[in-house]
Design a protein around this nucleic acid. Structure first.
Lengths: 341, 341
DNA sequence: GGTTTTTCCCAAAGCGCTTTGAGTAATTTA
DNA sequence: TAAATTACTCAAAGCGCTTTGGGAAAAACC
């Protein structure tokens, strides 16, 4: 059943039916009612392709995941998209997902922009100096970044969590507890969020009169295995840290393993704090002792990012949203006073 | 630059240009060359919406993830889609992703079918008795299932790994090593794969002359926390199992934690085998001792599923593919002879 | 040589929607 | 009562592509 048939069925023109359905003001109240009801009764659905062709709007948001960045984004992506998905579908937007493939990432964006296949894109996992921002600005394709691009704060829309503040807070908790030697097991610092976390960590160390020691700071992919490896290494040194900070719950699972192997006690021999993205399959409270975390739901961020982007698309003159989210430090059992050594 | 302009530029009709570009035979070799070259030079890209409207083909595959099933699929989804994505883009297909939202899942499929928004869908995480199969058959929307629907093997296209065989094999390894009391930490058995795994486990037990004991078999979400909880519980019993089987690496991270806490030794006090989907952030070899697994790359499955579906779409008469993948049992250090008790 | 094929190309008709530019009837205003 | 609004509705023109049904020129046949 298409518009034409529906119009004929109602003895109205396509124009009127289309306008009634789309809420235009120049159609009578009674007519609108009739149209709406008939449409519902016959289950009329406008053909999306026709709509897109006619309006030039795709009603779709693009997400592009390059294979090589997959490892970093992987476990976080589905949670982010779960949050965004609710918002998208509530607003009648589809998600157009592009993963890896032979086509170069840049080409994908160009194609999107030129063909109007999507109305906007969201950029995940921005790096310190990310070429995607300039490209998308040049292409004039609306976009929003989850995170920030190094120190740049203008010239693009973004939503970020205050990673620097979070790690400053977390580190401060440790220094307040008397820890003087605090290690950092960070994500890959080519990503902005990881650099921000390190900066926050260093801020707090300096405030406490300590100076960062590169030998107890790592920057690596956030996997179980790397968490294990770095933890083992850090805690095997003679002058081992009494506290460790992690950028990911994934690394923590590896860390717990390493710590057990070394016969150390979490919370007494070594204090642990991690950034918790709220991934549903890894929960910080389930650990024993429960893990002290700086928590920020990646899923909630996904939802908000989607909202902002849709608003930008609907009203391009609305300005460039910037949103910085605070994170909560949740103190649980994995942090304790520094052990006397 | 659109077709019309390109045609004018070449002094040809739209028809001819379109045909040249799409490889139809009724266009001269020299003309085709000219067209191809001009198209490349000006960077011509057909407008996808117009193409879709004209052909009725969407060049898109739908993936629908209900929020409530998210937890189960979550970490596996992105890896699956990473595999599928390569194939999709190589064939010029887009991924249309639908996540949660207020719209009921069934409605989404109906909309897809009726509007032609996608040419086919892939069904993930099938349950023992999954309504999606009947719905999609009724809607005549091409689809393929990753996994199987209970005992049904016909009436739908599927690609599955031989979960039953895998767990039979794994369990047999344990019984061969002399284990008589083997626990199972399974995924949620409303999902077919989990039931198949239990069946394989029971097969092997019976073959070894043992009878399955429900008190050492669990069925739950595959998270770190549940792995921990069930393991702790199982190994705290007086008559504790000497070997445990896991449906997921995620549960194993929790298990390792529990086992350490109980001061048991993996490989001697308790043997461990897990199903490993090959998720990039959790690797079985990184554990100490390295984990014995039945391994089957979910990413590879994603790629193959995509291939099969695209083939079905391109040739609807091609029959209904069924593919059962063997899994490899990889023996590593986490399995050892049953301890004398 | 005339007739039939083959080869190559074209004009025009959709695909299903939105939107422009009017037009008619009903309601106000002067 | 005539003129000017207002309220509704419509026919038709796109959006950019594919595809049908020919048609003209060239090649092949008798």
């Amino acid at each position: 059943m298409n518009l034409k048939q529906l119009a004929k069925h109602l003895n109205l023109s396509q124009t009127t039916v289309s306008r009634a359905l789309n809420g235009y003001p120049e159609v009578g109240a009674e007519t609108r009612r009739r149209v709406d009801e008939a449409a519902r009764r016959v289950g009329y659905r406008p053909n999306p392709h026709a709509m897109r062709l006619a309006t030039g709007r795709a009603h779709a948001i693009g997400h592009v995941l390059p294979s090589d960045r997959m490892l970093q984004i992987d476990p976080h992506f589905s949670d982010f998209i779960a949050g965004a998905g609710d918002v998208y579908s509530a607003n009648g937007f589809d998600v157009m997902l592009h993963v890896g493939g032979s086509e170069d990432e840049q080409t994908v964006y160009r194609r999107y922009a030129q063909s109007g296949a999507v109305d906007g894109v969201v950029i995940m996992g921005p790096r310190l100096n990310d070429w995607r921002i300039d490209l998308l600005n040049e292409l004039e394709l609306p976009f929003i970044v989850h995170g920030r691009v190094g120190d740049r704060e203008d010239g693009y829309a973004w939503l970020d969590v205050d990673n620097r503040g979070a790690f400053r807070q977390a580190t401060k908790l440790l220094t307040d507890l008397g820890h003087r030697r605090i290690g950092l097991v960070n994500g890959n610092e080519t990503f902005t969020f990881a650099t921000h976390r390190r900066l926050g960590y260093e801020d707090a160390l300096r405030t406490a009169g300590l100076s960062p020691d590169p030998t107890i700071m790592t920057s690596d992919a956030m996997t179980e295995e790397s968490g294990y490896r770095h933890t083992k290494h850090l805690l095997s040194a003679k002058d081992r840290p009494t506290a460790l900070l992690y950028s990911s719950m994934l690394s923590v699972s590896g860390a717990v393993r390493a710590i057990h192997e070394l016969n150390l006690e979490i919370g007494s021999d070594v204090s642990l704090i991690a950034h918790d993205d709220g991934l549903p399959f890894l929960n910080a409270e389930g650990l024993v002792p429960a893990l002290t975390t700086v928590r920020s739901s990646i899923r909630a961020a996904g939802g908000r990012v989607a909202e902002l982007l849709i608003a930008m698309i609907n009203d391009p003159t609305g300005g460039e949203p910037h949103e910085l989210w605070n994170v909560d430090l949740i103190v649980r059992g994995s942090t304790g006073p520094a052990a006397r050594r």
